[in-house]
Write a protein that binds this DNA or RNA. Structure first.
Lengths: 161, 161
DNA sequence: CTGAGAGCTATACAATCTGTCCAGCCAGAT
DNA sequence: ATCTGGCTGGACAGATTGTATAGCTCTCAG
């Protein structure tokens, strides 16, 4: 079975692009727009989901629309062995949207949001007021010239066959 | 109209949580699970989308499943006035998933992916080989203990009424 | 050259869901 | 007391989804 390929073809890419831009259209309409049989689109989607390329179709929620218009990135340095507790502490903060452990001078990189610059102070305080965090540095995101996207990557995958 | 509120109530939060966890269920099934009339759920969704809280229902694509298992964050320093060109250059790189302009020592923070650590070198080369980028520093993400999430934030919004 | 396997087309059917209306009811605001 | 907005429960037609089946074509291996 050649399906173990880790890549996607042009039809997959077009399908994903279509669904990303107009999620409401559904499988049937997508098949019409792509000019292929519905069964084909359905089979493609099933395969993409089975392979994990498509995780799901959850609602995309905009924190800014909820009043959290300020985004910032915090780099944390953690005391030896304190990782697990810190991780738990961070996970409990709703304003922390994601956290990665990283190489380099810091140990963790967090993406956080706040209602305002003043509110950001509160969030950062909540973030760092925990034993085990030895040092932090925060940068505030001003603009977002390239919003999160994956389509160019899927296109590149498809292009290289 | 009280609808200008920038927040959401408990029902909204429960609805969003439900749809996030099981996107395929649809409006009707969601109304059954939440114990409210279908019209109510439909009206809530319409309002959430109208307010921009819910941007859409696009497919969530996992770069890792496409073979891009390495994530990194690159901080760039840009020469005075070179911002626009650099922005364009970056936008053309498919492995660049998002880019923010930031305060602090750097000027831009980029999230990039690559197929491997070796491939990361290629991506970074592509990223920085451009006049106007004066300095860069990259950290590689090792693990992702807190994957991107918004639900806790919506819950917090709903909780504070 | 030939058979096997995989993927796409085309079509069909039943079961569901979606988009819309509508009338009634309730609670908070005026 | 009156009004507006939101929720309920019900109803309908139209469209979509899940599932199957059969025929074709292309590619790969024997």
């Amino acid at each position: 079975m050649t399906a173990s390929e880790t890549s996607i073809d042009a039809l997959d890419a077009r399908l994903l692009a279509l669904l990303t831009e107009e999620p409401r259209i559904g499988i049937l309409e997508a098949s019409r727009r792509l000019g292929v049989a519905r069964g084909t689109v359905q089979a493609r989607m099933d395969r993409l989901q089975a392979r994990g390329v498509v995780r799901g179709f959850g609602p995309e929620i905009d924190p800014a629309a909820l009043g959290y218009g300020v985004t910032a990135f915090a780099t944390l340095e953690i005391a030896q062995g304190r990782g697990p507790e810190v991780r738990e502490h961070l996970a409990a903060i709703p304003e922390l949207l994601e956290m990665h452990t990283i190489t380099g001078v810091g140990d963790m990189l967090c993406r956080i949001v706040a209602r305002s610059n003043a509110d950001l102070q509160r969030v950062i305080d909540a973030l760092v007021s925990f034993q085990g965090i030895t040092r932090t540095s925060t940068v505030v995101a001003m603009a977002n010239p390239v919003p999160y996207r994956v389509l160019p990557l899927t296109a590149a995958c498809a292009a290289e066959r």
